[in-house]
């Protein structure tokens, strides 16, 4: 497929996507699910860049999500800022936290990196539960409705919030796709797959890692921003392992480095939880098992099952769902 046709096809898909909740009946529950899917997909796209492109596992992305949500809650409820200003605040705070965390973990790789990021998530949860500035265990209430008076736009329910959520999703997908085509994205892949080649080609691995980290954190934080408006209240449960497992599963289940992978992954998970739920604990077991089984038995994700079929029909120069090569 030529590049131009691909763009046109994607544009059509993007327009059609907006009408998905209407096609599905347009009930309140459908809109609520669609808004959540969009928010969580955006959250996952942030992590996707780290896991799929950089080849590291950051377990601190729930922290960026929480930073986005808490900053929004503080700015909108206490300081009376509108959505656009609180978005700017959320992105800025996420950048700050990511820079701090990125600099500290710059030297660390693989499991030590993950270990420290996990510890950051645990500590962030204790801080959020105990610090009265963040509302302690009660959380922060009274986040106003999403209203941009400049545009005369206001969203008081999920149906009205859907355009915002959908735009945010498109923006996130656009950023990730441009990132993959950019010099930084290619440098990240090189650092991931062949660090030595990267160094000899004049790519600074640490710099690249830090830059990707700084790009990825605001994406996840922007999801937190919208989540705060959607829920109208934020508490320490945004730091729960649920979000972490959700993100990780969404990133790996369909196949890594697939542009729509995280979106499809989040959709599968949330549709199960919202419309085919077996109760919270069983859902937990299902979600965890999907993550385990995908990584253990389907390293290239669900796409891997169909990949052999695809070769029957199309001649492809490079496989799409390429498994991440092992590192020794």
């Amino acid at each position: 497929m030529s590049h131009g046709m691909k763009t046109i096809l994607l544009a059509i898909l993007a327009v059609l996507g907006f009408f998905v909740p209407m096609i599905l009946g347009g009930s309140g529950a459908v809109y609520a699910a669609c808004v959540l899917i969009a928010i969580f997909a955006v959250m996952s796209y942030g992590l996707d860049m780290i896991v799929s492109d950089l080849g590291e596992v950051s377990l601190a992305h729930t922290v960026f999500f929480a930073v986005g949500a808490y900053t929004t809650a503080l700015l909108s409820a206490s300081a009376g800022f509108g959505p656009l200003l609180s978005l700017a605040g959320a992105l800025l705070m996420a950048l700050l936290v990511a820079a701090l965390l990125g600099l500290v973990t710059l030297q660390l790789r693989e499991f030590v990196f993950s270990l420290v990021t996990y510890a950051v998530a645990v500590v962030a949860a204790t801080v959020a539960q105990n610090w009265s500035f963040l509302g302690g265990s009660d959380g922060l209430r009274g986040i106003p409705a999403f209203e941009i008076s400049l545009l005369g736009f206001s969203a008081r329910n999920d149906r009205e919030l859907w355009p915002v959520a959908y735009l945010l999703l498109l923006a996130a997908i656009y950023v990730v796709s441009s990132f993959r085509r950019s010099r930084l994205g290619q440098a990240a892949m090189m650092v991931h797959l062949n660090p030595r080649l990267a160094v000899t080609s004049g790519v600074d691995p640490q710099r690249t890692r830090l830059q990707v980290f700084l790009l990825s954190a605001p994406i996840t934080a922007s999801a937190g921003w919208l989540y705060a408006y959607q829920r109208a209240y934020i508490s320490a449960d945004v730091l729960e392992t649920y979000f972490l497992i959700l993100m990780l599963t969404a990133v790996v289940v369909v196949g890594r480095r697939l542009l729509l992978g995280p979106l499809v992954g989040v959709t599968l998970i949330l549709v199960q939880e919202k419309f085919f739920s077996f109760g919270g604990y069983v859902d937990k077991i299902i979600l965890g098992s999907v993550l385990i089984l995908t990584l253990s038995f389907l390293p290239s994700g669900l796409v891997g099952i169909f990949a052999p079929l695809r070769t029957l029909f199309a001649r492809r120069q490079a496989p799409l769902g390429k498994p991440i090569p092992e590192r020794s």
Binding site: L248, K284, L287, L295
Partner: peptide
């Protein structure tokens, strides 16, 4: 392995 064990903990 890290992610899988994390998933096991969740389960």
């Amino acid at each position: 392995i890290m992610i899988v064990t994390l998933g096991f903990g969740y389960v």
